[in-house]
Design a binder for these strands. Structure first.
Length: 262
DNA sequence: AGGACGCCCTGTTCGC
DNA sequence: TGCGAACAGGGCGTCC
């Protein structure tokens, strides 16, 4: 579930509560989450150092420790960050735990262990190695047109392709397509100038509003499809039934009246 | 190249 | 009521 807006909210939480704090202890209960490093090397990287800066690219969060390198976090489907005052016990499903000098902690919580913890010299080198596209929230209309020109296949898969643009997952791709009034199976090559512009506006607006709502669907306006993403619910625009299909290997919700089939 | 599918993983929901 | 199957989905690998 953590898509770009969720990760941005994690970032802001970490920025507000963990930056400038000195790491006193590192524990990794979920070893399978580590990619290319051991708990020992992670401990060496972080222990005794202060967290100085964070950056987000797509669904990845980078955390720099004292001019040394960057911790990389990806949250998979159910991952999240939790921080607070250390009271002797990490939250349930903590996959990695940082404890800080003043008696606070940062926990990477991952019930399904589908996330990733890595280390990189710079965010740029990691982004290049993973072949991630431009961050979706920073994508210009000109860039989107350029990407569209060389893309075949359906819209939904394109929006979710992290190599094309980074940060959009299943839920927000549905929302973006709904706001842009485009069917998830519309071919990218069938987009005209007008609908590409509409899509670009929808990407920017949906991501910005989701971040403003702390990535909490309950805080989003009722006009969002996300609030009605269940079988039997009704489209907030036309009150017609919401439909569920399989697209790009995922469950897609859309309004067949507002998003006519290609 | 893109799409369909399986896998990872486990809590939740569904159906009999 | 209870239990097992199906589902949820981000990302990756495989096959067509």
């Amino acid at each position: 579930m953590p898509e770009l807006p969720d990760v941005e909210v994690f970032k802001r939480c970490l920025d507000a509560r963990c930056l400038q704090q000195k790491v006193t202890r590192v524990q990794v209960p979920a070893l399978s989450l580590l990619e290319g490093l051991t708990p020992q090397s992670l401990g060496r990287h972080l222990q005794g150092r202060r967290l100085r800066q964070t950056r987000r690219h797509g669904k990845f969060l980078f955390v720099r420790a004292d001019a040394h390198g960057w911790l990389v976090l990806h949250f998979g489907m159910t991952g999240r960050l939790a921080c607070g005052r250390w009271c002797g016990q990490a939250p349930h499903y903590t996959g990695a735990l940082l404890r800080f000098e003043p008696g606070t902690y940062l926990a990477y919580v991952a019930p399904r262990k589908l996330g990733l913890i890595a280390w990189t010299a710079t965010p740029a080198s990691f982004i290049a190695a993973k072949r991630l596209g431009t961050d979706a929230a920073a994508l210009s209309l000109a860039q989107l047109r350029k990407l569209a020109a060389r893309r075949r296949g359906a819209l939904k898969a394109w929006l979710m392709d992290q190599g094309a643009m980074a940060g959009i997952g299943n839920l927000y791709s549905d929302e973006i397509l709904f706001q842009a009034r485009l069917h998830p199976r519309t071919a990218v090559r069938d987009l005209d100038r007008h609908s590409t512009a509409r899509l670009h506006r929808a990407i920017g607006r949906v991501l910005a509003r989701a971040i403003a709502a702390q990535a909490d669907p309950k805080r989003l306006p009722d006009t969002f499809l996300l609030r009605h993403r269940t079988v039997g619910d009704r489209c907030p625009r036309c009150a017609g039934p919401v439909r569920r299909i399989r697209a790009a290997g995922r469950t897609a919700y859309y309004c067949p009246r507002c998003q006519p089939a290609p």
